[in-house]
Design a binder for these strands. Sequence first.
DNA 1: CGGAAGATTGACGGGCGTCAACCATCGTGG
DNA 2: CCACGATGGTTGACGCCCGTCAATCTTCCG
Lengths: 253, 253
Amino acid sequence: MPQHLIRKLEQFTRLCHEDRCALVETANQRPRLYGAHQDIIREGDTPEHVNLILDGWACRYKTLENGRRQIISFFMPGDLCDPHIFVLREMDHSIGAITPVRFAEISRAAMMRLTDRHPRVTRALWWETLVTAAIQREWTVNLGQRTALERLAHLLCELFIRLRAVGLTDGDSCLLPVTQVDLGDATGLSNVHVNRVLQELRAAGQIALKGKRLTIPDLEALQDVALFNPNYLHLDREGRHLDANQTVEHTPG
Amino acid sequence: MPQHLIRKLEQFTRLCHEDRCALVETANQRPRLYGAHQDIIREGDTPEHVNLILDGWACRYKTLENGRRQIISFFMPGDLCDPHIFVLREMDHSIGAITPVRFAEISRAAMMRLTDRHPRVTRALWWETLVTAAIQREWTVNLGQRTALERLAHLLCELFIRLRAVGLTDGDSCLLPVTQVDLGDATGLSNVHVNRVLQELRAAGQIALKGKRLTIPDLEALQDVALFNPNYLHLDREGRHLDANQTVEHTPG
DNA sequence: CGGAAGATTGACGGGCGTCAACCATCGTGG
DNA sequence: CCACGATGGTTGACGCCCGTCAATCTTCCG
């Protein structure tokens, strides 16, 4: 069940029953289960499917000749890996499982069937693609301009809010199943420094992080630390004029 | 005349006469001319057009509350600013002119007319969009994992190859109309350090940079310095099976 | 219970930022 | 044609943020 994807797309616009059924049907084909640290797709491969994450976390990454690794983005449940990838002949990066991952392999034909018949879903997938691009741009800002403290705080804010958008938070806490090495590879920091900065955030009461559970007692405070502006996530139902149930645009005054 | 865009799209697939005419017609509407350092669109604005750069350079950027600026990407002639932006309600970043810029404002209707009638162009614009995303990912890697020297060398390699793809290089040199402050804002380095690294590259004979002219006597050598792998630019006519003149897929022999 | 993966700590050093001064270049107007 | 101011480039001094290395501790899982 792609409930996380549906929930995410409904951050953009409300879907009708048929839209949801089509998504369920599309996501039920070709289920896959990969173990932690396995590669789902490798740089140089020919893209054959769109992968829809159903459970677990994965990441895009690149490894340089000198062995250093950069995590380019995180995938969580509800995320689609490259919905329009078929135009390219060859992957320029790898996608690997962080935790055990359950995902659906969606064929090109199934994607076309879905989008041909469900224009509202098509628009919502467009929105998803554009938000993904916006996240990538924000990572550029994060790596280029923020200090280690701001950078990690920013990443934690983003991940928490994205998890909340797919229904995977529990009050002010969520599961964060990544190692400090992963956080370092994503933020361009060494694992040692990640450790120190996390302790600093803990000492300041900005976060609690124990086991794989992250708690953010005061999200606004953490956003202030991070210079975090959530506008790039475009989460305020921007496509409400497309709502399946014909919501009236203006609010009564 | 959008000759740079046409030339770029033909890195992906060859276009027919009608395709090119449609592009010319689309680009001839609503010409604009902005001075250096003027904003073309600001964070918070509602996107109304797709901007096609005809002459000059621009950039995407964000400014943080603390005043620091990150250049998120460079736009050069032939580049489209956000071909699918209409799905979003509000810009999450700004676009500013670096040099005086001549560009075409393409309306939503004009974009739809173009893509409805010219599927080969549509595919090529898709490819352009995906390459733009790939560039953004590579910038993430650049900022996260490369040293200042590698980082600047990588940026120069990328810009040179992109300029070459639109016909704006002259042998081993090109115009690079950006200041060292701009290079710093794009690479997350201070202008002072940019200056030192450029001198290091000059001293090693890897580049010549005088006035606004960049010369790269040995591009492969600079790529080695930069840990540069051009695969993310997807420039080897990946859509050749769509060629307007029906090129046969296999090569003889 | 044992081994591996992950987290933590300390010592040390270097890459790169900051500050501040000075030089070079260029467009503009008198 | 040159003066001049603004913008951009260059240099040096200084120091801190964060990387590296290496040891140790904790957690987890079979």
